[in-house]
Design a protein around this nucleic acid. Structure first.
Lengths: 231, 231
DNA sequence: CCCGTATATTACCCGCGGGTAATAAATAGT
DNA sequence: ACTATTTATTACCCGCGGGTAATATACGGG
């Protein structure tokens, strides 16, 4: 039934009939289309008409779900941020050396960066948001930065990481990871997991206390649990 | 202003030259103000009125020097690119191992990234440009990317760099460097040169064949080994 | 069946900002 | 001083696109 007859469009609004989808699903559909277009064309070059049209609806319909364009932008960002937060929480829940935590963060963050919502964390201009939302974003960014730095400091303290400037190292690592959001596209030959693992090794190779050439201990990166709910 | 070194009577071309020079200076003043505002407020939120106003002129006056807003954006980018090109040419002219060249590039590129025009290389959206200019930009970006990769490959070939995936390593390094353009601001306690040197060491620490503290061949990078404490 | 609510549409507003005359003021060349 | 050219100003156009009002259609409950 809900199997759309024509997969040409992922939109729940098939021209006329089945419009009885749950509200949240429609909201999500809007966000998925929006983030895709924002990334593809840029926020300012993407009109709400563009978004609506590709969903087989009209612009004002969007206002049933969002208060304005900037809120859509914010929600896209928020979904990506949520995934990073999940990652941070998982790490905080687990144990391990500073280096181990840092690597977990790199792997998780890198994988997020290969998704549309993840890209929105670094490709969107936060100055397009309202003052209120912008502050939330800035706070979140500081949180991520602090995580990187504190894991590095932790690693230095526990001996798993060589003494180094935590701030600069964090910038270097975060920069490499954020850049993924600019060059990665799903079609490539390197799958996200491979990229993430390679980066986890490479980016810590310079600061790890011991030689990093260990192949074991990592293959099963833990059950990567898929959260069913999208949001 | 420009004290004419000799009376105009001696050189009939002098007036012409001086006028052209004055024109170029004004053009540059426009670009300096534009790049500053574009970085500060973002391209789309910066109006030509903003630019003109801060220069004590009016919007249409800008059209004496530029054909439109997008051309101003392009010229800002071009200045930054020129500096990178200078850096690339210097490296190409000199010698050294692949690793040495890579480090030179890191130092040079990092320093460019701390300038306004350098930031424009990574903070501006090329999709705001005309098709023609966008193609030039893409070409230049590929050129830089090729430089990173080829130095790495060269380093692997001559033994100065450990075997690794040149493409991924280049992305990682370029990402760290490009990120500088997002976080650096002149007021900080770390001067650009220090950042550049630190990055040159850190970013190659993982892939350098031997311990990084070697002064073999040429010492293009000052032996600033001071690791650990940093400051 | 009727009504309330949620959802969608059509038609419109309007402000922002890039770009363009038409024209005035400055500067060089003779 | 007169003229041509460059450079600047004032005043305007107009299209794009975010946002709104009025309205139509569907759905669910009594």
């Amino acid at each position: 039934m809900d199997g759309s007859p024509s997969p040409a469009s992922q939109s729940p609004w098939m021209p006329f009939e089945s419009r009885r989808r749950a509200r949240d699903e429609k909201r999500e559909a809007v966000l998925r289309m929006a983030v895709q277009l924002f990334l593809e064309q840029g926020y300012h070059r993407t009109t709400l008409n563009d978004v609506a049209e590709r969903l087989n609806i009209t612009k004002p319909a969007l206002y049933n779900y969002f208060s304005g364009k900037d809120e859509i932008l914010y929600e896209c960002w928020a979904i990506g941020q949520e995934r990073v937060d999940d990652c941070l929480n998982e790490i905080a829940a687990g144990g391990g050396s500073g280096l181990a935590k840092l690597r977990k963060l790199i792997v998780g963050y890198a994988e997020v960066m290969t998704t549309d919502y993840g890209k929105s964390l670094v490709r969107f201009d936060m100055r397009d948001l309202t003052e209120h939302n912008r502050r939330i974003v800035q706070l979140a960014k500081r949180k991520i930065d602090r995580a990187f730095r504190s894991y590095i400091r932790e690693g230095i303290a526990d001996g798993s990481i060589k003494p180094c400037d935590a701030k600069l190292s964090a910038f270097a690592i975060a920069g490499s990871l954020n850049w993924i959001g600019h060059w990665f596209q799903p079609g490539g030959k390197l799958p996200p997991e491979t990229i993430a693992e390679e980066f986890a090794i490479h980016l810590t190779e310079g600061i790890a206390a011991k030689t990093t050439r260990k192949k074991a201990e990592k293959p099963p990166v833990k059950a990567k649990k898929m959260r069913g709910g999208t949001r």
